[in-house]
């Protein structure tokens, strides 16, 4: 996906790993542009947006409620999301969000 920067857009890199990429069209790296909003973009909103716009296979393997499924780790700029407020973290432009699944079927 080409990266276009518009004045009223919110560019972000979203990456998947550990098998989660298979739920997102088998692509590991997505450069996404989120629509500009009045309220700041949080991880909670990003997960909902991903579910609506990027997810191609079985949503139950990725989301649970408004968060990701237990067993899927979230890293923002290589930092554990537990350190930065989890779902309430306010995304900044050009952040790199990485979702890695540790689930393997037992």
């Amino acid at each position: 996906m080409s990266k276009i920067c518009l004045s009223n857009s919110f560019p972000l890199t979203v990456q998947f790993g550990g098998g989660a990429e298979l739920l997102f069209n088998n692509t590991k790296k997505h450069d996404v542009i989120l629509p500009q909003k009045e309220n700041p973009w949080t991880l909670r909103l990003l997960i909902a947006w991903l579910k609506e716009n990027l997810l191609t296979e079985k949503p139950e393997l990725f989301v649970q409620g408004e968060s990701v499924r237990p067993g899927i780790l979230v890293l923002v700029n290589d930092q554990d999301w537990e350190l930065i407020g989890e779902l309430d973290y306010e995304l900044k432009e050009n952040d790199n969000v990485l979702f890695i699944s540790t689930l393997h079927g037992g």
Binding site: L22, R69, P70, G71, I100, S101, L103, H104, G105, G106
Partner: peptide, 29 residues
């Protein structure tokens, strides 16, 4: 970079007892 994908995703064997146990452990965790 992680290379191979674990068995559950390609085979979609997520109705197994082992997978349920896995979810149970992660949920408790």
């Amino acid at each position: 970079e992680s290379l191979a994908v674990p068995s559950i995703f390609p085979m979609m064997v997520y109705n197994s007892l082992q997978h349920e146990t896995e979810l149970f452990v992660y949920q408790l965790q």
